[in-house]
Amino acid sequence: MTTSTKPAPSELHKFLFEGLPVRGMLVRLDESWKELLGRRKEPLTPAVRDLLGQMTAAGVLMQANIKFNGALVFQVMGDGPLKLAVVEVQPDMSFRSTAKTREAVPDDATLQQMLNVHGQGRCAITLDPKDRLPGQQPYQGVVPLSGPD
């Protein structure tokens, strides 16, 4: 099961509450998400679609906040029916999202049930610089998925 496209978010807004130490960012993927889903030959199950949508929004927000000149890759992989979900966001906020399954994922599956059935789930974030120096490797952090859903 694979979905790929390079749309950009429909909206990306930064906000700040005057006089308070509060700031944030809002992203909406409306049209770009519909475009991504519309290119699929087979629909995603609701659980996979929701996870991939949340990951895509999170990836766009991370890329917008770090202002990194390169690709930000956010992925989860595991030992459940969902083998892998990956989002790549470029500095111009264009993105690609992909999900691969081993078997059918129940419509109401939790993250634990999709990816971490036997405790082998992992989450990775990779920063791949656009203009890497010779011998320079991408930066990557990998952590286990743990705890309740």
Score class of each variant (00 low, 15 high):
residue 65 N to M: 00
residue 24 G to H: 11
residue 56 T to V: 11
residue 98 T to A: 03
residue 61 L to I: 09
residue 37 L to T: 04
residue 88 E to S: 02
residue 61 L to N: 11
residue 47 A to L: 05
residue 32 S to Y: 04
residue 88 E to H: 01
residue 108 D to I: 00
residue 73 V to F: 02
residue 87 V to H: 00
residue 14 K to G: 12
residue 25 M to Q: 06
residue 63 Q to F: 06
residue 94 S to L: 10
residue 99 A to Q: 04
residue 111 L to V: 03
residue 7 P to A: 13
residue 59 G to L: 11
residue 7 P to L: 12
residue 21 P to W: 04
residue 44 L to D: 10
residue 87 V to E: 00
residue 25 M to S: 10
residue 99 A to M: 12
residue 56 T to G: 08
residue 67 K to E: 10
residue 54 Q to E: 15
residue 109 A to M: 13
residue 84 L to T: 08
residue 30 D to R: 15
residue 4 S to H: 12
residue 52 L to T: 00
residue 72 L to Y: 10
residue 54 Q to W: 13
residue 13 H to S: 09
residue 14 K to Q: 06
residue 95 F to Y: 15
residue 110 T to Q: 06
residue 91 P to V: 06
residue 52 L to Q: 04
residue 58 A to L: 08
residue 106 P to I: 02
residue 36 L to N: 12
residue 97 S to Y: 01
residue 50 D to W: 11
residue 74 F to D: 07
residue 7 P to G: 05
residue 35 E to C: 02
residue 71 A to N: 13
residue 73 V to R: 09
residue 32 S to H: 07
residue 15 F to A: 11
residue 21 P to S: 08
residue 41 K to V: 13
residue 2 T to S: 14
residue 88 E to P: 00
residue 3 T to P: 06
residue 105 V to R: 08
residue 6 K to P: 07
residue 60 V to I: 15
residue 29 L to R: 07
residue 55 M to F: 05
residue 55 M to T: 10
residue 10 S to I: 07
residue 109 A to Q: 14
residue 99 A to R: 01
residue 9 P to T: 07
residue 94 S to C: 13
residue 16 L to C: 12
residue 53 G to Y: 08
residue 3 T to N: 08
residue 21 P to N: 06
residue 84 L to W: 06
residue 35 E to I: 10
residue 47 A to Q: 11
residue 62 M to R: 08
residue 42 E to I: 05
residue 90 Q to P: 11
residue 32 S to F: 05
residue 85 A to T: 10
residue 11 E to T: 15
residue 10 S to G: 07
residue 83 K to N: 01
residue 35 E to Y: 14
residue 87 V to F: 00
residue 60 V to M: 06
residue 12 L to H: 01
residue 50 D to A: 04
residue 89 V to N: 00
residue 70 G to P: 02
residue 101 T to G: 13
residue 95 F to I: 00
residue 52 L to A: 04
residue 52 L to M: 03
residue 13 H to D: 12
residue 104 A to K: 11
residue 95 F to L: 07
residue 111 L to A: 05
